[in-house]
Amino acid sequence: MNNLRVRRLRTISILTLIGTLSLTGVPATQAADDAGGRRLGTSTEHSSGTRPKPTVVLVHGAWADSSGWAKVTRDLQAQGYQVLAPPTPLRGLPEDSDYLSAFLRDRTTGPVVLVGHSYGGAVITNAAKSDKDVEALVYINAFVPDEGDSVLGLLDPNHQLDPADLFEFVRYPGAPEGDYDLYLKQSVFPDAIANGIPARDAAEMAAAQRPVTLSALTDESDAPAWKSVPSFYLLGTQDHIVPVTLQRAMAENAGAKITEVKAGHLPMITNPHVVEKLITEADRSTPAR
Rank of each mutant, 00 (worst) to 15 (best):
L234R: 10
I241L: 09
G25Q: 04
G116E: 08
D65Y: 10
D75C: 10
A249I: 00
I258G: 14
S66R: 14
Q160V: 01
L155A: 05
A128Y: 13
L266S: 13
A225H: 08
P190H: 01
K262N: 10
L278Y: 05
Q82V: 00
Q82A: 15
E45C: 13
A206C: 03
Q79G: 15
V59R: 01
T24C: 09
D222C: 04
G255Y: 07
P27I: 07
T88G: 04
Q30H: 01
E95M: 12
A288C: 15
T11N: 12
A28R: 03
S215F: 04
G264S: 11
V72D: 06
T109F: 09
V229W: 10
Q79A: 14
T20Y: 14
V57P: 09
N195F: 00
L155I: 01
A31Y: 01
V56Y: 02
A223S: 06
P86M: 13
P267E: 04
D133T: 13
L182H: 03
A202F: 07
L58Q: 15
V170F: 10
L235F: 10
P27G: 08
K132E: 07
P173T: 15
L76Q: 08
R284W: 03
A128E: 08
G68M: 10
R171H: 02
A199L: 07
L90Y: 00
K277M: 12
V144E: 02
V151I: 14
S231T: 04
T259P: 11
S47G: 12
F167D: 00
A70I: 03
P52H: 03
V188M: 03
N126F: 14
I18K: 07
T286F: 04
Q30A: 00
T213V: 00
M268P: 12
P173L: 03
A216S: 13
R171I: 07
L234N: 11
F189V: 00
V59T: 09
R105Y: 02
G121M: 06
A254K: 14
V59C: 06
S228L: 11
D219F: 04
S67I: 02
D165H: 01
G116M: 08
L40I: 11
P176H: 06
S97M: 01
T213Y: 08
L104S: 02
I124P: 01
N3T: 13
I18Q: 12
G68R: 06
H159R: 01
A282S: 03
P87R: 12
E168S: 10
V170R: 15
